[in-house]
Design a protein around this nucleic acid. Sequence first.
DNA 1: ATAATCCTTCCAGTCACGGGAAGGTCAACC
DNA 2: GGTTGACCTTCCCGTGACTGGAAGGATTAT
Lengths: 130, 130
Amino acid sequence: MNIKDVAERSGLPAKTIRYYEEIGLIRPLRGANGYRAFRESDLHKLAFIGRARGLGFTIEECRRLLALYEDRARASADVKALAEAHLEEMERKIAELRAMQATLRDLVRGCAGDDRPDCPILTGLAGGCC
Amino acid sequence: MNIKDVAERSGLPAKTIRYYEEIGLIRPLRGANGYRAFRESDLHKLAFIGRARGLGFTIEECRRLLALYEDRARASADVKALAEAHLEEMERKIAELRAMQATLRDLVRGCAGDDRPDCPILTGLAGGCC
DNA sequence: ATAATCCTTCCAGTCACGGGAAGGTCAACC
DNA sequence: GGTTGACCTTCCCGTGACTGGAAGGATTAT
């Protein structure tokens, strides 16, 4: 398989696939013409990575997940720990966004939103002093 | 004022302040020795930017907010529109995180988390097929 | 033969900084 | 007046996870 087929079948851009090879996530073979020759197993890994990325795992987490995936002697506890850490990380991010939203919403609520210049959003950002 | 004082009073790292000058957010004066000479107005702007960044606005949004802040003929509607767009952007991000969390939580729930290798998280990532 | 579509590598840019090197300046102290 | 230490400056590289584009080689179709 050439890169374009793998791109279509994995849903990942060819550029991304090359990048994943560059950082050692996959190691496709090479044909005599220098083209990457992907096996089904490469495609499989790419789809795996694509789904993990889609769940927000970082590349390094994907690397660890892939290693666990390929380790038949793994303990599911290790996978679960990784996943739960990621869930917590997402929870943290959501909380942060919620806090920012709450603050900004308070400012927005007080803003007339007309053609006059007075704006509590700006005065709020300026420190509320002037 | 030298950069360290401004850093302390604005809560921003000196590195960040230099960066903000580089991208044209602030334009401090320069002393004969080449040192940046910050006015109170620079400090004020930096604090403004710091708060805006703290609410998740991008640098370009901060630039627009600053411009509105300094435009006495602004319409508060413009500020409000910017803020509301940002609120929506955050809402989108939260929804995305929530969706990822929900999917991952489903996978985690099925995982024994013991020393056996069987793991629905991994099979889920692998496409659920094998 | 030629044109279109692939493929390759390499370089540069994104965003918002942070780390660290090399070197100039200033204030205090002895 | 010399020296230390704390400042300041610019410059370049690195981050994460790609994306865009240029330059050039290979393959396929007509």
